[in-house]
Amino acid sequence: MKPVIHLGVFGNPIEHSLSPRIHSLFAKAQQHPVEYRRYLSTPGRFSRNIAQFFRSGGKGLNVTLPFKQQAAELATELTKRAQEAGAVNTLVAMGNGQLLGDNTDGEGLIKDLEEKGFKVSERSLVVFGSGGSARGILPLLLQQQPRRIYLVNRTVDKALMLKSQLENLGVLAADRIQVLASALEINEPIDLMVNATSSSLMGQRLALPPQLAEGASGYDLMYSDEPTLFMQQLSQAGCENVSDGLGMLVEQAASSYQLWMGGERPDTAFVMAHLRDRS
């Protein structure tokens, strides 16, 4: 019998996480003996908890809020996209106490947008928020060569700082980001809106752009059994193509799983179908 491979996810809160179910489906499909568990931590205990997990033989971890930036500081090596994001959602044991930190969030979003037919290239986008979630997706969105990305955040200085950091890191096309305090200031039709804030979780409505392009799309990084508040807003505004972030969650998980296990990328279509059927 093959030895059990220990994986997991750290966060706070963490009891709601779908990651164990997703990774158990990947493991079953690829016939890997995996045990994937949720771990609750605190900022003060996080580094000790991580060290204990890997000392005990753990192979890899996912990291979710609020620990992604702490995880980047703990990694002994960062991938280029983790450096650009300034945050890590995947840790990989490399032996001798060395940890590789990666960020698969942006790749997960791009793969799900492509799957759903949401276009980025030469389109005008709005990204709401400038926190860790926005940091994780902006470099990958910029790689798709959008016409412009409006980065909308109530605290303009925070958004300007994020843009400056991306430019200093040499992120492709970072000069195409335009920072605004409100989407109401936009004076062109918008093709795609991405909510990288916790507004849906908090029950807060966002001010949408005055003009939406024909066939405009909207994407909420949050996921829910029912349409999120942001998705409801978009539908009320006449946006026909809307989605929550469940697909991104599954796609970024597949990228993490492949990093840990090697071999082929897990099939995500059957996992998505399973999750939607069970929700």
Rank of each mutant, 00 (worst) to 15 (best):
V4D: 04
I5C: 07
I5T: 10
G8Y: 03
F10A: 04
P13E: 10
I14C: 04
H16W: 04
S17D: 11
L18H: 10
S19E: 01
I22M: 10
H23M: 08
H23A: 06
L25N: 06
L25C: 11
A29Y: 00
A29W: 00
H32E: 12
V34N: 06
R37N: 09
L40G: 00
S41Y: 02
S41H: 07
T42I: 03
G44H: 09
G44W: 02
G44E: 13
F46S: 04
S47Q: 11
Q52C: 11
F54N: 06
R55L: 11
G57E: 13
G58M: 08
G58F: 04
G60N: 11
L61V: 07
T64L: 07
T64K: 11
L65A: 13
P66E: 02
Q69R: 15
Q70A: 12
E73T: 06
L74H: 05
L78N: 10
R81C: 00
A85G: 14
G86I: 01
A87Q: 03
A87T: 00
A93G: 06
G95H: 10
Q98P: 02
Q98D: 08
D102R: 04
N103F: 09
D105N: 07
D105W: 04
G106N: 09
G108S: 09
L109C: 06
I110N: 11
K111P: 00
K111M: 03
D112Y: 07
E115G: 08
S121R: 10
S124C: 12
S124L: 00
S124V: 13
G132Q: 06
G136M: 04
L140H: 10
L141I: 04
Q144P: 02
P146R: 03
P146E: 12
R147Y: 02
R147N: 12
R147S: 08
I149W: 09
L151E: 14
V156P: 09
K158P: 06
K158Y: 03
A159Y: 04
A159G: 03
L160H: 15
L166A: 02
G170W: 10
L172E: 14
L172S: 11
R176L: 14
R176M: 12
I177H: 06
S182M: 03
A183C: 10
E185P: 01
N187V: 09
E188A: 12
P189L: 07
D191F: 02
M193I: 14
V194I: 15
T197N: 02
S200M: 07
M202T: 10
M202Q: 15
G203F: 02
G203N: 06
Q204F: 01
R205L: 09
L206N: 12
A207D: 15
P209R: 06
L212C: 15
L212P: 04
G215Q: 11
A216W: 05
G218Y: 01
D220Y: 01
M222L: 13
Y223N: 02
S224F: 00
P227C: 08
M231L: 05
M231N: 07
S235A: 15
Q236H: 03
G238C: 05
G238L: 03
E240C: 09
E240N: 09
N241R: 14
V242S: 03
S243H: 12
S243G: 12
M248C: 06
M248Y: 07
V250K: 13
E251V: 00
Q252W: 01
A253I: 08
Q258K: 13
L259T: 00
M261Q: 15
M261F: 14
M261V: 01
G263F: 03
T268G: 09
F270C: 13
V271F: 06
M272R: 14
A273K: 14
A273R: 13
R276Y: 07
D277L: 11
S279D: 05
